[in-house]
């Protein structure tokens, strides 16, 4: 713990800036590693609904997500780092989304894009709409909007990059994927008689769900 505190570069921030003024560049392996990771986040190529159109626009020339190193949309979950849940997740689609998330290699991140993906949105009262994908998989960044503009997706992406930048390689607050004992499987829900079973993953969604309208 003590050792970790000393290694943390937060304490040396002023010294780093001072050395930078003198023309000396100082970095840590952690910083270099995170810089490399955040600069080449490859999203998975899939869209669920109208938000996907905005996601596609974000990758095209006008908004150009490639500026942030995320232009390579992978058609296979095994090559992707980022899942952008762009659109309404129906209860028929939710098991597939969770299954694809499980098939992504660690470390993996999720952006829930739009009102539907974060809460069910305008279709929340629909019997077949999942009220937020964060009931089954851990979501890193939520973007509200119906649909969010490409700028909003870019801001969410930059927020994710900041999150990646702040992740420590060692210590008690290191992310889940670095913990050898942490599990990597998120149970895939199945279609039950009235609702998905289970209605949520208690590990990522501790709130109790009472009925279909919750």
């Amino acid at each position: 713990m003590m050792n970790y505190e000393l290694e943390s570069n937060d304490m040396d921030q002023e010294l780093k800036i001072e050395l930078g003024k003198q023309g000396i560049f100082v970095t840590t392996i952690e910083d270099l590693y995170n810089w490399g990771r955040r600069s080449s986040v490859w999203p998975m190529q899939f869209g669920l609904a109208c938000c996907a159109i905005e996601m596609i626009a974000t990758t095209m020339a006008r908004y150009d997500l490639a500026r942030f190193g995320a232009e390579v949309f992978r058609p296979s979950p095994r090559q992707a780092d980022l899942m952008i849940v762009s659109g309404t997740v129906t209860k028929k689609m939710a098991p597939q989304v969770v299954r694809l998330y499980n098939q992504m290699a660690e470390p993996r991140y999720v952006i829930a894009m739009g009102a539907c993906a974060i809460s069910g949105g305008p279709f929340k009262q629909g019997y077949n709409v999942l009220k937020g994908i964060d009931r089954y998989i851990p979501v890193d960044v939520h973007i509200p909007g119906c649909p969010p503009r490409p700028e909003a997706l870019i801001q969410a992406f930059i927020t994710l990059q900041e999150k990646i930048d702040g992740q420590h390689l060692t210590g008690p607050d290191r992310p889940r994927y670095l913990d050898a004992n942490a599990q990597g499987e998120f149970p895939v829900p199945e279609r039950g008689e009235h609702d998905l079973e289970p209605t949520s993953n208690q590990g990522v969604w501790p709130v109790q769900i009472q009925g279909l309208r919750d």
Partner: peptide
């Protein structure tokens, strides 16, 4: 650290 599970190790990656 490897985190294998039956879904991840499935032969064909698909929803």
């Amino acid at each position: 650290p490897p985190k294998p599970n039956p879904i991840k190790n499935a032969i064909y990656e698909c929803g």
